[in-house]
Write a protein that binds this DNA or RNA. Structure first.
Lengths: 324, 324
DNA sequence: GGAAATTCAGAATACGTTTTCCGAAATTAG
DNA sequence: CTAATTTCGGAAAACGTATTCTGAATTTCC
């Protein structure tokens, strides 16, 4: 392995000067800087990050902790974050706690030991979580911290529901049912309440709580149609539920969207695009969320204090609410 | 931050002795070792991995390169690998190349710079790829290297197809059709050929090549039923295709599995369990594959030379081939 | 009881950088 | 032509640990 010493020797300068040239620091003649760089190129020099980390106090590494086993939600967040972090020369260490406190402690210790410059914490749902205790910069992404003093980039669940309701209302729908996920899921309740409030008298029945599954979507159709055969829309708490809703409606011979319009939530392609018809839904912009989180972490590391941000999902209109 | 110096001072020993005590190396009295450990605990000492990496030549870090944007296939591989690696005190740096050679080079450079102890390369498909060029241990997982001298942990696609075919034959099916993915996908061809060879005269038509989608699954049913109305099974190249096949068969009033049995491939829960009925399929054991890869990398790092391994998928029997 | 063998711990060095002074050389001002 | 600035690059001290070598203290053996 070629060291900076070798580069310095070849360029005919001291090791300190070589360091400055390579890092664009210090006061050096342009010609000297170039000479060092040429030498480095010629030797195929790759800076040893260990030495740099030790002496500069910056490891150019951040940790990413998720409880989600890198599932459907944390992956896009991670990719977005990684996008801006790797542009900032940061490497990312992945830590999957699998919802286990012991594993989480293990990873926090490992990251501390490696003297990472910062940590991004994310998870499976937009419900908040208790903060981790470390004395380095931390940003919470998607899963906000319960401590308002922490910087969290979170999702505006309520706004997402409102956007969908507004879309339905603007299309002239006024007999709407809402099929939600499980009651113990804060985000499910948040979405249902926001939708209900916005719908007002256009809501034909109190939101139905169940589970995040296609099966529940199918079941809910039977339930709803029995009590409210004349409804003209079903707002589902997730794309998965919505797909089940569509399947059952089709089986019953109801035309979507002419008889009944259906909306989802998440813009999960596997569900939203594979559904028949494809779903009108809201895109969670998780990659954007990740990017914001990455940038916030970089700011925090640089010593600035970024604001917490909530990201509003965007409407995606497809055939489940609008015919040809 | 508390350093090993502080621990040594508190324990009343030299810094070198403290290091030995903490690492279980060297010749030390048990009592001394314990005294140092107690001091470390008392001070909440967390070893600085930078110093250790520099002086020991081991960074206790491995890189994980995927072309898959951490998608459906590389995630489980990654989790499996991470499982055994983190048990070996290794941290994992994630690198998502997004199928871009420039990004791949960037990451390889970054990992080299950080002096990782090894690299795991994985990807989107079981098709092989050209090896990366670095002078540290590398293991290819799921996506094997084209160079047989490299150690690759790969998936036995052909065996998976055979397992499914054997299951169908053993259930007395003898008029089987095969619906595959795209022709340019090596794994699709591999599976189709293996299935065809095993089926022999039980194969009613040459395998149909299309795409990895539910829609193609639905279309293929119409195609097949027109030319072979009396077939008793459809073998799909993936769970996604199989789900489409099931949907269309149900729409046409065919009973699954009594009229037609259907098999998938992948055991992707979102498809295999949500399908009606749930799919008989093969589980790819990607987590196992990842674990093998992780262990192989540890072996390689330790100086041993592990063998390349191919993993045989296992049969998962559900209602799409066996009635109640 | 002395010599030989063994056990234990410390001193010193190395790992590869960054960064803070400091002084020499070059430039400008008077 | 000397003095005051400015520009540039080097020397050396960190950063925190592992490891090798060596010597002292203890034990064992005859």
């Amino acid at each position: 392995m070629v060291r900076i010493t070798d580069v310095a020797t070849l360029a005919g300068v001291s090791i300190g000067t070589a360091s400055k040239a390579l890092n664009n620091t210090g006061q050096l003649r342009a010609e000297t800087r170039q000479r060092v760089r040429d030498a480095a190129d010629k030797l195929g020099f790759i800076m040893d990050a260990r030495g740099r980390a030790l002496s500069s106090g910056r490891s150019f590494t951040v940790g990413m902790i998720t409880t989600d086993s890198f599932g459907r939600f944390s992956i896009p967040v991670m990719l977005g974050a990684e996008d801006v972090l790797s542009a900032g020369q940061m490497a990312v260490m992945m830590c999957d706690t699998r919802d286990d406190t012991v594993r989480e402690q293990h990873y926090i210790r490992s990251l501390s030991s490696r003297r990472v410059d910062g940590i991004i914490v994310t998870g499976r749902s937009s419900d908040s979580r208790s903060p981790i205790s470390v004395n380095i910069p931390v940003v919470y992404a998607f899963t906000p911290s319960t401590d308002p003093a922490d910087v969290s980039i979170s999702l505006d669940d309520a706004r997402g529901a409102e956007v969908l309701v507004d879309h339905l209302l603007s299309r002239g729908r006024h007999r709407v049912a809402y099929v939600s996920g499980p009651h113990h899921h804060a985000a499910a309740v948040l979405r249902a309440n926001a939708a209900a409030a916005r719908l007002g008298s256009a809501l034909v029945a109190p939101p139905l709580f169940g589970e995040w599954s296609e099966r529940w979507g199918r079941q809910s159709v039977d339930l709803l149609l029995r009590s409210h055969p004349d409804l003209d829309s079903i707002c589902a708490g997730s794309d998965q539920i919505a797909r089940g809703v569509c399947d059952r409606l089709r089986e019953l011979g109801r035309d979507i969207p002419n008889d009944v319009a259906v909306t989802g939530f998440d813009d999960w392609n596997v569900m939203a695009l594979a559904s028949r018809p494809p779903l009108t839904t809201v895109n969670l912009r998780l990659e954007d969320l990740g990017r914001f989180a990455g940038q916030a972490l970089l700011d925090l590391i640089a010593g600035n204090r970024p604001d917490s941000v909530t990201i509003a999902p965007t409407l995606v209109i497809r055939e489940s609410t609008v015919g040809y």
